[in-house]
Design a protein around this nucleic acid. Structure first.
Lengths: 210, 210
DNA sequence: AACTGTGAAGGGCTTCACAGCG
DNA sequence: CGCTGTGAAGCCCTTCACAGTT
């Protein structure tokens, strides 16, 4: 196993490989070659091999990879061999929909709490997830052991929220507010920006109508 | 102006520059240098200049860029000087939340229709957006002139849905289903995959706890 | 003097191509 | 022979550095 830093894009692909392996495992396939996997899912076989080689030698020359074995390796590498508690900040339409969405996805991420500043919402429940007061975020987040924060508040409040999240010692954040957030090094932030995404789709439409 | 292909990443940044310029315009600033803009928003000044240079010479040497002028250029380049009709497929929790979300964002994207296969939902409204039968997608999409399709259905149905969308002649798609979709060339697909995003956050947590 | 526009250098990721192993 | 693991090449994007312009 190499101890060099693994690129962001590699880790994202590991997650895709895992999904592929789950499909193959469900289909009862025992072994798979990088080439077969690449063809089936529109990837490059060398890239698959290189990505995996970052973490060890999982393959068997002349044979390929054992589907179940590799899947289990990836699960451990990604750290999803255990549950992760997720807290969603912002109990508006988006936040509550996300809470519901994650509950349905059977993944290793469990939404354990929602947070909002609106006193009318605090104490209510979305499904079986309670809405807490954002004012007590640090205490409550620690209490329910939140590891991942999801930001689903309006753009104007997002920077303040992420600073609160940081100061509560949370290291992983997924942001849905349409704004570039500034974070300290050591915090991992992934943003889903629907505005910029739609605008690049618009650019494509404007410049490809021949 | 160059007519070479502009990279995906450049178009994504244009959208970010536009947001910056809107802030500066709101603050009443008349002119801005690439350096000042870069510092303020954590970007690289050469990159800003290079990105913009793909589309023309908008700056004034010794001065910088005119905020309003550049903003208007970007709006036209991105093709958001007019409204785009968006159709959301899947009127579940996520689809309806997205419909609501886009309505609140004052952008140039308007959700004009929801689609679902559930006959109990068809005909109902989310806000003032009607839910249509997915069976009539091609006809209804043409009728309301949908340019961008948003897929918010379960993973198992997403591939069939995107094929339906393609065959209706829609060229721009944003996908929220956790699956890699295959599309023909000529279609622009942007995927937001919450599972892979959370899993790479998990990887980070597992490998950075020192 | 200030700042843009851009050639050149640098860096990182992807793909190729093949040595090595089962 | 088949397939992995990997050095090398290729490609693309970012950053530097400065000539050019007002």
């Amino acid at each position: 196993m190499k101890s060099e830093r693994v690129s962001e894009q590699t880790t994202k692909r590991l997650s895709i490989y895992l999904r592929c392996l789950n499909e193959l495992a469900a289909a009862g396939q025992v072994s798979v070659s990088s080439e077969a996997c690449a063809k089936r899912f529109g990837l490059n076989s060398a890239q698959i091999r290189k990505d995996l080689a970052n973490f060890g030698e999982f393959g068997h020359r002349g044979v390929g990879y054992n589907v179940i074995g590799l899947r289990d390796h990836l699960i451990r590498i990604l750290g999803i061999d255990r549950q992760h508690a997720v807290g969603i900040i912002g109990a508006g339409r988006l936040g509550t929909a996300l809470a519901d969405y994650y509950r349905v996805l059977d993944s290793n991420f469990t939404v354990v709490a929602l947070f909002d500043a609106d006193t009318k919402k605090i104490g209510k429940k979305v499904g079986d997830i309670e809405i807490f007061d954002i004012k007590n975020f640090a205490v409550d987040a620690k209490h329910v052991k939140i590891e991942v924060a999801v930001i689903a508040v309006p753009a104007g409040e997002a920077q303040a929220v992420i600073e609160l999240v940081e100061s509560a010692g949370i290291k992983a954040v997924m942001n849905f507010a349409p704004i570039r957030l500034r974070v300290s090094p050591g915090i991992k932030l992934k943003s889903v920006d629907m505005t910029t995404t739609l605008e690049s789709l618009s650019y494509f439409l404007a410049n490809n109508s021949q």
